[in-house]
């Protein structure tokens, strides 16, 4: 490597005084070295440090401190692993963890399946699909809060249209309070969530589908692959990267955002829909215990990182 400007210059011609002090020459020289790349990256690296890494680290250190806003008397000392120890014996934490797993797995599974079906339907370019696409994507444009309140009303045990319909169709004997019964609260919330977010998958998968050449399906037709085989052996493998990205994004979204559950159930009845994000939110903003909330968030962060890592491994997306 030739990073020493003197040596290069010396070999070609003698240096004049101006050459020695000319700043442009040094920059020019520098731009020839491999440091230049890092130099160019520096501003954005600093920005990332400031905007991403610093707050993340701040959240981490918070989890090792006492920080209860409504208890200034306790101070803000370091408490080492106190919060993490508490978590081990905290029933609500474990319930929330389990509920989070159920919530995320079920929601992503349904959202992906429905999203895929919708994307496949829209990809057929039949007449009317343009209009249909707008309708299918509509839920996604509703803010979580609006979707939540809308469904809370539709599922209302007194005025809800859904109960009305189910009773009229004969599927239900009488009006049901979906969110008051622990055996249906989670399922109902998952359905609302899936309704709201499946277009996310539709959108991404549709973009992926558009990229698959139609010749592949013709070839598969001739090769004798039926539609299920085509889906399994051609479509899905070709969407692998898109699916992986979409699933990871959606899982992160589902793990981190409590707002829909906050509106629909607030974690109830009992703890039956309590999830980690909601628990952390409540710990911070109802109990003002930011230290413990910080610890909960660190755990969520670690779990998400692990999930993303394992998932990328298993789905082998970065192999080809």
């Amino acid at each position: 490597m030739t990073s020493n400007p003197q040596s290069i210059m010396a070999s070609s011609r003698p240096l004049s005084t101006w050459d020695r002090i000319n700043p442009a020459r040094y920059i020019g020289e520098l731009s020839e070295t491999r440091f230049w790349m890092y130099l160019l990256l520096l501003p954005s690296a600093l920005l990332i440090m400031g905007v991403v890494i610093y707050p993340t680290l701040y959240g981490f250190q918070l989890s090792f401190r006492e920080m209860r806003l409504n208890r200034p008397d306790l101070g803000t000392d370091w408490v080492l692993l106190k919060h993490y120890q508490r978590m081990l014996s905290d029933q609500i934490f474990w319930i929330s963890l389990r509920n989070t797993a159920v919530w995320v797995t079920a929601a992503v599974t349904i959202e992906f399946s429905v999203g895929l079906i919708a994307a496949l339907a829209l990809n057929r370019n039949l007449p009317g699909t343009k209009v249909l696409a707008v309708f299918i994507l509509l839920p996604f444009f509703l803010p979580n809060v609006v979707a939540g309140h809308m469904w809370a009303l539709m599922l209302d045990p007194r005025l809800g249209v859904i109960n009305d319909l189910l009773v009229k169709v004969g599927l239900l004997g009488g009006y049901k309070a979906w969110f008051a019964d622990p055996s249906t609260a989670m399922a109902a919330a998952i359905i609302v969530e899936a309704w709201h977010s499946f277009p996310f998958f539709t959108l991404l998968l549709l973009a992926g589908l558009k990229g698959i050449p139609t010749d592949l399906y013709k070839a598969a037709d001739i090769d004798g692959a039926g539609s299920i085989s085509q889906l399994r052996l051609i479509t899905l493998p070709m969407l692998k990267t898109v699916i992986a990205a979409a699933v990871i994004l959606r899982v992160i979204g589902l793990v981190n955002s409590p707002d829909l559950l906050l509106i629909l159930t607030s974690g109830g009845p009992g703890r039956s829909t309590q999830v980690l994000s909601l628990y952390a939110f409540q710990t911070a903003y109802k109990d003002f215990n930011f230290g413990y909330a910080g610890a909960l968030s660190v755990i969520m962060f670690i779990l998400l990182m692990m999930f993303a890592w394992v998932y990328v491994r298993l789905s082998k997306v970065n192999q080809d």
Binding site: P55, Y58, G59, L62, M67, N256, P258, S277, A280, F281, T283, A284, Y285, F290, A293, G294, S297
Partner: peptide, 9 residues
């Protein structure tokens, strides 16, 4: 914004 961001700080 949730606690993991600024409010706690």
């Amino acid at each position: 914004k949730y606690w993991e961001d600024e409010a706690m700080n």
